[in-house]
């Protein structure tokens, strides 16, 4: 459950432009410790950009972004490289297209970063990796290669890989959108288990409305680069207050 203390991730008045196109226009958002938030909205609303900014994959033209109270961006000015690396270490991200390293085995995919970045030794990294693989149900695939795995398996490996760096904030960018329907369930199961057994803060961009409703503590609806409405899932899905939210939800349900 969300804590009443300071948010672990906070956006204030963030403006993000890609050339002429403004994607985020005065964006405000806060993620509390241990909170699970689903970010929904039409394509182009800037949802993925929010995650990418938090993961320092995109820059910001104006506004502030704070991680555990530390300034990643302050009034459009970035933190220095060392500080940014320090703050970034709190975050992990899983991508829509997995981005597993094709030249490494599954096990090596998981142990590379801990060995390089945290300087854990090979044995410890290997043990952690095997534990995480067991957790996502793929302990028998440790020596397999990414191109031998199905989409659902690749995504589960990607989740395990991100967990190996022990982030306290996990970002999930449409992690089931690129999967065939029969594999979506196995990935959602992993997410559910993470939500139950850890106190990580989780921010998910997703189109899986049923999942969001049952899993999230809070749902935020985004449109035109801003949060239009947010609240507990039941309230937002059943009784949306804003017209744009109603329109979006009815379009999604009509499928």
């Amino acid at each position: 459950m969300p804590s009443a203390a300071e948010p672990v991730l906070e956006f204030s008045g963030v403006v993000k432009r890609f050339g002429e196109h403004t994607v985020l226009d005065g964006f405000d958002f806060a993620l509390g410790g241990g909170e699970k938030v689903a970010l929904i909205g039409p394509s182009g609303s800037g949802k993925s950009t929010v995650l990418r900014i938090a993961m320092t994959l995109e820059d910001v033209q104006a506004g502030s972004v704070r991680v555990h109270g530390g300034d990643l961006w302050r009034d459009g000015v970035p933190a220095g490289p060392a500080r940014m690396r320090e703050l970034r270490a709190h975050l992990g991200m899983v991508f829509q297209h997995f981005h597993l390293f094709p030249h490494l085995s599954v096990l090596d995919n998981l142990t590379l970063a801990p060995r390089l970045a945290k300087r854990a030794d090979a044995a410890a990294a290997r043990n952690t990796a095997l534990e995480l693989l067991a957790r996502v149900g793929l302990e028998d695939k440790a020596d397999a290669w990414p191109d031998q795995l199905s989409g659902g398996q690749k995504q589960r490996v990607a989740i395990a890989r991100a967990l190996a760096m022990r982030p306290d904030i996990m970002l999930f960018d449409e992690v089931t959108s690129a999967l065939d329907p029969e594999m979506v369930g196995e990935v959602l199961d992993v997410l559910r288990e993470l939500g139950r057994t850890t106190d990580m803060s989780m921010l998910l961009v997703t189109h899986e409305m049923d999942f969001a409703r049952r899993f999230a503590d809070r749902v935020a609806f985004m449109d035109g680069g801003r949060i239009v409405e947010e609240g507990p899932p039941a309230a937002l899905f059943d009784a949306p207050k804003e017209e744009r939210t109603q329109q979006f939800l009815s379009r999604v349900r009509a499928r």
Partner: peptide, 8 residues
């Protein structure tokens, strides 16, 4: 991007 997200 994946490398960066893993703190490399």
């Amino acid at each position: 991007e994946a490398a960066r997200a893993l703190q490399l």
